[in-house]
Amino acid sequence: MQPPKLTDEQQRYLDHLRVQRRLAERTLTLYTEALERLNALAAKADVPLLRLTAHQARRFLAQLHQGDLAPRTLALILSAWRGWYRWLGHNGLIAANPIVDLRPPKVGRPLPKALAVDDAVRLADYAEPNADPVGEALDRCLVELLYGGGVRVSELVGLDLRYFPTSLGWIEPDTQEAHVLGKGSKRRAVPLGGPALKALQDWLAVRGQWAQDGETALLVNKRGRRITAHQVRARLKERALHAGMPTHVHPHMLRHSFASHLLQSSGDLRGVQELLGHANISTTQVYTRLDFQHLAKVYDAAHPRAKKK
């Protein structure tokens, strides 16, 4: 006789999650499937669920791993198992949690998405026909600061026209720098190239048409107040669509593009780390993998030994 898909204890646990923890139905469905996997493995090994040992649980995990399940899927399964056995322990039904020390395989860190150099330049140079000149100047300025300076969107919206005692960041036209407040409240100076300085000048020439009196923010919205990160994302998304970008563009993609293109040109990992404001160089090293992907594509396209039959 086939064992039930869920035991009474498992059903009570899921009811607890639904009523007391108020988990979403999708999460409950995934937890149900995870417990059903556990039941099938235990039945096949003829192991009583309430007497499962850590060694047996580790063997179950290895079997699932051999089934080519993704690390994130395995992590969710283990979370469901661990939670159920923890609940059993709280209710005095088991003496020890056999899942407590099990860990899923590490999830590979996804590569950041960056635009091709030509696409990034096209986005920065794009001019919307019949656009509001103030809005057009704002869009060009924010793109140049994101791509030309590699700043985070939070750093961008925190910029003031100049230094004030309350400033999170500010512009120094004389030294051609932007001073920003990054993660961990660490300040850094970001050099501004010619296109970024030109975009700043063009924006400052029309900023007064939108900005309210006394507003210190460098970038303002139509209401005359400091632009928000959400508004930056929306404006950038619209500009990218009009410019015919091949992918969805968001502010952090321009920061990734800044880092990747700079590393491709210079190979100076430490310098890129400083410009990005990364506390740990391992965070910056992910761009070397992105750069290798670029080189691999060049190799595949050009080297005679790489050409496919």
Rank of each mutant, 00 (worst) to 15 (best):
V249I: 08
Q264R: 06
L236E: 08
F258C: 09
F258E: 07
G244R: 04
R270Q: 10
S257E: 07
G267R: 03
A240P: 07
P251F: 01
R233H: 14
R233Y: 13
R233K: 10
H250T: 13
Q231H: 09
A240S: 14
R235A: 14
R255T: 07
K237H: 15
A240M: 13
H230A: 15
G267D: 03
V249M: 03
H248Y: 07
A240I: 07
A243S: 09
L241H: 15
R233I: 06
V249A: 04
A259M: 10
A234Y: 12
L269F: 07
A259N: 08
L263G: 04
M245A: 13
L269Y: 05
H250R: 05
R255G: 05
A240T: 06
S265C: 01
H256C: 12
Q231V: 07
R270D: 13
E238D: 15
R255S: 02
L263Y: 00
V249W: 06
L262K: 00
Q264I: 03
M253Y: 01
A243R: 07
H252G: 01
H256E: 12
L263D: 02
L263S: 01
A259G: 06
A259K: 11
R255F: 01
R255Q: 02
P251I: 06
H230N: 09
G267E: 03
H261Y: 10
A234L: 13
H242K: 15
M253D: 09
L269I: 15
A234S: 13
H261S: 11
L254S: 12
L262C: 02
P251A: 00
D268E: 10
S265Y: 05
